[in-house]
Write a protein that binds this DNA or RNA. Structure first.
Lengths: 395, 395
DNA sequence: GATCTGACCGCAAGCGCTCTCAGTCAGATC
DNA sequence: GATCTGACTGAGAGCGCTTGCGGTCAGATC
């Protein structure tokens, strides 16, 4: 004898008799059971309740819910009416377990504490909710060992696809994801990631454009404040800085490159170090706008005028960059676009698991504002065009 | 004859024979099946696989996973070894469906596009991942009708508890949540929400303190730029502004209160309107730092010096507030603390559904910086203490 | 030695849904 | 009128897990 569907069980040990009563009677809005202390607990209607009210089987309800084509119009309407009258809402976990869509995509990142993250998540959010999906946000807080666990848990019955903002290096689990054909997209990953779908910004050309801009203004001693070394973009930006110097025949001086962490306090400190050099730089290029704000603060404290005594360039183009005085010259990174593109790509993968691998590089743009000017002592006109290096690049 | 556990079914129609082969054999790392095109697909081990390897029943594995006490130590170790060797990861949806914990909390907000949100989510993230939970982020993008749907879906088998950043008013679904005893906490909800757990900041005392500060500096015509009118905090801040004026016997002038939206562009516009008044204000209090940046920009453009010609106060104390020049006097709102407190409260509710309702109000602090000074023409010393109004308040 | 006790563990129902397979039945075809 | 077709629907197994209930068995008790 095959399995029979039995009476549902309540979570908190209600007597079966009460259950029967609650379950019976078509047309009731929801199963209701009184708890011991007189409160009322409402059990959400299931697909079976809807089926009963509509006078069809649960399979038919499921088909209606999922937009299956072969359903008679009258039946569909009856079911929909029943769903509305009962206030039916699909149980996501059950659906996911039974092999349907969970409608959730995961976003894995180190943390939520930067303008970079905020921009990306805005784009992701927009695109995800536009597609009627939900977003699961997971932060690893730099605990590398948590990443693999997260990925395993998420990819195992929790989300349909994964967006991953990775630090440098390609951990094992990425290979695992690839092997298991789980749909995922890497964001801002500059390393070589064979077979992976990646979305990132043209960091290197952007940084080169910024450096070019300073060079064209006559700057020869240009300080550079890096980001955290575990991020791929940090190295790409440093690469762009170097590219431009090399192209201009300006030697790369070690003392002018200072390690930073994308944040303001370190930008401030780094600038104090740079300004303490015997032959201080006349321009400073920071790897983030936040760090550039630190540069501005340190300059102010040192009594230097920007841009007359010191030119400053940032990276990101956060909204505040144009609010400060002088407004910050910076490299615009299309953060929201990156988020959006990543989601779009993920949706494509969801629709077609065999879609060919893509590597999307979004253009960066040099935004010239008031914080950069001719180098002190530099004479005449700028010695070349500026701001022309931006655009999609090889990363 | 009772139900027998049958062979597992693969999602994509693999032949049963392959399944049998894949399922059998204790000690294999995972069930593996080749797809048509030669790729390999790895099925994650289930609790049954672990049970088989450990030589126990699936119930025992479940008990070990969930830290059930009555398990012999040797058994526990055997099971744990099996889990490790198989790389077992619990299936969250299945667990949630079966009545266990999903380990996910939901955060419902209008959008992710403000410093307010970023601060709150940082706190939430920190506390959530500290507790070993996951975060599900849902944004309604101001589509009110989506909220109820979200809440229904989330509270129905998806998350264990809900954090809700609500605009003004108390929608029906909140009452529904309360009725169904689903654990949830409202964040930054200033309206009366009977029976709801709420975490918010002392907006009103904070705004009063900021206004007091300007009054003490001799300002009498103080402009006020509001936030979006659908937020409770907007009205609380306006209330605090009014409180302080009334207490100082300064008349509230309609033309000095301009509607804003918490964002920079509108802050800029609003300031231009204020500065165009015949008798322009000598101080402007904006309902957010972003809006205050707009005030600074408009002042700069109008050739006004800050604070000599115009004093400016913001609200929030975002990091940038102290980076700009002059640094912004503002009301610090403990955004991260709000996020953290909300999660803490939710965890308490999760642990004890009958915990008494709490309304947590976190203190705001006036941060006096360079953007405020004595009113032009005001003589002598400040006419009263400043900055003394901050602290926990009634909201 | 019989009974009791309690720690430990297994059985199997059930969570709410999806999806395959097997009908059913009205209309078309021969 | 018998057969076929295809649109539509129902039955029910199964997803991976939790958990109540009951069984087992070694040691304690009488």
């Amino acid at each position: 004898m095959p399995c029979k569907r039995l009476q549902p069980r309540f979570r908190s040990g209600y007597p079966p008799a009460m259950m029967d009563r609650a379950r019976s009677g078509a047309g009731d809005r929801a199963r209701v059971a009184a708890t011991g202390d007189g409160r009322i607990r409402v059990a959400r209607p299931t697909i079976f309740d809807v089926a009963r009210v509509a006078g069809v089987s649960s399979s038919t309800v499921s088909r209606v819910v999922n937009g299956h084509p072969q359903i008679r119009d009258t039946t569909r309407q009856r079911v929909q009416a029943a769903m509305v009258s009962l206030g039916y809402v699909a149980h996501v976990s059950a659906r996911a377990l039974a092999g349907g869509r969970s409608g959730v995509v995961g976003l894995l990142a180190q943390g939520v504490d930067s303008a970079f993250f905020l921009g990306v998540i805005q784009g992701v959010d927009q695109q995800v909710s536009g597609a009627g999906l939900d977003l699961m946000l997971c932060t690893t807080h730099d605990r590398r060992e948590k990443e693999a666990e997260y990925v395993a848990r998420l990819s195992h019955g929790m989300v349909e696809g994964l967006l991953i903002i990775l630090p440098r290096g390609l951990p094992d689990y990425v290979e695992q994801l690839r092997a298991s054909q789980f749909p995922f997209v890497l964001i801002d990953h500059d390393d070589d990631a064979p077979g992976c779908n990646v979305v990132n910004a043209a960091d290197r050309p952007g940084a080169a454009a910024a450096t070019d801009h300073l060079l064209a203004l006559g700057h020869r001693r240009i300080g550079f404040i890096t980001g955290t070394l575990n991020m791929g973009s940090t190295h790409q930006r440093l690469g762009g800085y170097r590219d431009a110097l090399v192209a201009a025949g300006v030697p790369l001086v070690g003392e002018l490159v200072v390690q930073g962490d994308f944040l303001e306090p370190r930008g401030y400190e780094a600038t104090r170090e740079l300004l303490a050099l015997t032959d201080r730089p006349t321009g400073i290029f920071a790897s983030s706008d936040a760090a550039a704000f630190g540069v501005l603060r340190a300059a102010r404290e040192a009594g230097l005028r920007v841009p007359e005594d010191l030119s400053v360039v940032g990276f990101d183009d956060v909204p505040e960059a144009s609010y400060v005085d002088p407004a910050l010259t910076t490299v615009r990174q299309p953060l929201r676009d990156m988020g959006r593109s990543a989601v779009r790509r993920l949706l494509e993968l969801l629709a077609d698991p065999d879609a060919p691998v893509e590597r999307i590089v979004l253009a960066t743009t040099l935004m010239v504002r008031g914080s950069t000017g001719r180098a002190p002592g530099a004479d005449g006109e700028p010695d070349g065009p500026t701001g022309g290096r931006d655009g999609p690049g090889s990363g």
